[in-house]
Structure formats: C-alpha cells, structure tokens
Design a protein around this nucleic acid. Structure first.
Lengths: 136, 136
DNA sequence: TATTATCCTATCGATTTGATAGAGTATGCA
DNA sequence: TGCATACTCTATCAAATCGATAGGATAATA
C-alpha cells in the first residue's frame, strides 16, 4: 500500500507543477487545495526540499516552489524519496539492498525470482513518467 | 513492502510444488525446511487451505498438500489471498476497490493516473507466473 | 521591531505485524 | 476402545509503523 505521505507528496508536487510561474506557494494553500492536514504536509514538503526537489522561502511571501522543470522530475526519484524502496523485498532492491537472513540462496529463491520481475515492471513505469506526464 | 506472511506463504507453496507426490507434508517439516516460525506458518497454511489452494489431513500421516497442479496456480490468486490488493491504492484496485475520500475526481488525479499504470504492470507479471514457473 | 511563514523536534493514539500459547477436534492405529 | 498425532481455532502480546498534532526556533520581509 502506498503511504499517505507519498500520496500527499505526489499531490502537492502535481499541484505546484500545474502553476504557470514558479512563485512560492504557502503550505496552507497547498493543504487546502488538496484536502490535506497542514501539519502533516509540512513534514512532507520539508522532506522534498531536503532531497532537492523543492525550494523554499521563509517569511512574508514565502512558501515552496519547484526547482526543476516538471518534465525533468522522474517518478523513480520521487518514489524513492517519499516511499523508499521500489522493490517489495530488500533482496531485490537496487538502492536499498539487504540480504534476507532466512534465505540461504537468492538464485534458487522463488520469492526472489517473482519479486525481481515485479520490481522491473514497476521501475519501467516510474522511469517513463515525469511529473509533467502526471498533470497532462 | 511484502509482508512476511506472503513471503512465507509463497515459500511454503513452492516447497510443496517441488515434491513429486502430493502426499501430506507436516507443518513442522515445511517450517524447518524454510526457516519459518512453525506457529506463524500454521496460520498461513490455514489461510491457504480456506481459500482453496491447499488441502489438509489431520492425525498421523497428516499435513498439507497442493490441491491443484502448480502450473494451474496463478500468482494473481496467491497474492490476493496472502497480501490482499495488488494495487497500491484502493481507488485503482480491481478486487478491493474503494473511493478516496479526499479526492474529488479520479480522472484528474495524478496519483490515480500513475498508480493505474503500476497496477497494470504488476498484474501482467502475476498473470504470467504460475507456481510452476517459480520453481523452475 | 513586528509580522509572517518555514524549520525542527518531540510526542501520541491507533493500527498492523509477526509471533506465541494453549485448548479443541479429527484421524489413524494398536 | 483408547491413545498418540497433527491440524484447528481463538486469544493475546510486544514491537513497529503510521498519520497526525503541538509548540517553539529561525529567517525574511516591511
């Protein structure tokens, strides 16, 4: 299941992408527009800023804004920042690899074999979608 | 993330599928072979039996066994039984559909659009894999 | 200097997860 | 019949995660 963090983050990014200019938008405005708890959204936007997708400005006239062009923001990056691993098990993760302690041999593991395919199919989707694609 | 329930369930099914005959196999034997907590596995096998994938026999010489041929057991079914929805959000689920309360219009929702693609790509994988494919 | 709006940490209740305990029930066999 | 075996079922539990909230710190604007 997709976490609400990811869901809200995607919605916030999409909203910012629909705006013509790149002027800062207040958290309150985004939260209201997307029906999201403002305080919860605060922490999400902070994550997105720290990972380099958003810029921010404090004080009057401040808010959050996209740093890059929506067509240059890949879903692979967004998903990894918000949701974490794209793979369903750590032993098939490219960016968050971990060995299973109960599994003696990955090559002969049926779960590994299946989840490798699922990961690749998801990766294909995320690699072919930018933020610009989502708001078309 | 894949739950351990699903992971263990898949491993148990795979183990049973590798056996030539369809004689009952004790929980203890499966648990030992796959390094799984026996009590936890008990509840998983019970689920698989109730959903029609496994048969069971009580008493001496009892245990669990596959009812169908491994090549007739689709991963779509196995995943839905063990893990639940294949979709990452309920609003794009075929078998567990639920409307998002915060989203006024699915057609214009960017999350919906992306998750629809992810669901379809995962479905394709699960539909093309049977239990027989996993143990090859 | 006052106001505005992000930054950051800490906490909290609810839910889920993985695991365990133990009594009940059906089967096979002597 | 009686006993051993192995699944059946319910109840419980600790730990982790999730979604959300509170409140003060910090920086920018006017």
């Amino acid at each position: 299941m997709l976490s609400k963090k990811t869901k809200y983050g995607l919605k916030a990014l999409s909203f910012l992408a629909t705006l013509e200019d790149r002027q800062p938008v207040q958290i309150a405005e985004i939260a209201k527009h997307e029906n999201i708890s403002q305080k919860f959204l605060e922490s999400i936007l902070l994550t997105l800023r720290k990972s380099g997708l958003l810029g921010s400005k404090k004080g009057k006239g401040g808010g959050y804004y996209l740093i890059k062009d929506p067509k240059d923001i890949l879903m692979t990056d967004v998903m990894r920042i918000l949701e974490g691993p794209i793979a369903l098990v750590p032993c098939v993760s490219l960016n968050f690899y971990e060995k299973c302690e109960d599994c003696p041999d990955e090559a002969s593991c049926s779960v590994h074999k299946l989840m490798l395919q699922v990961r690749d199919s998801a990766l294909t989707v995320y690699r072919h979608n930018t933020l610009a694609d989502l708001i078309k």
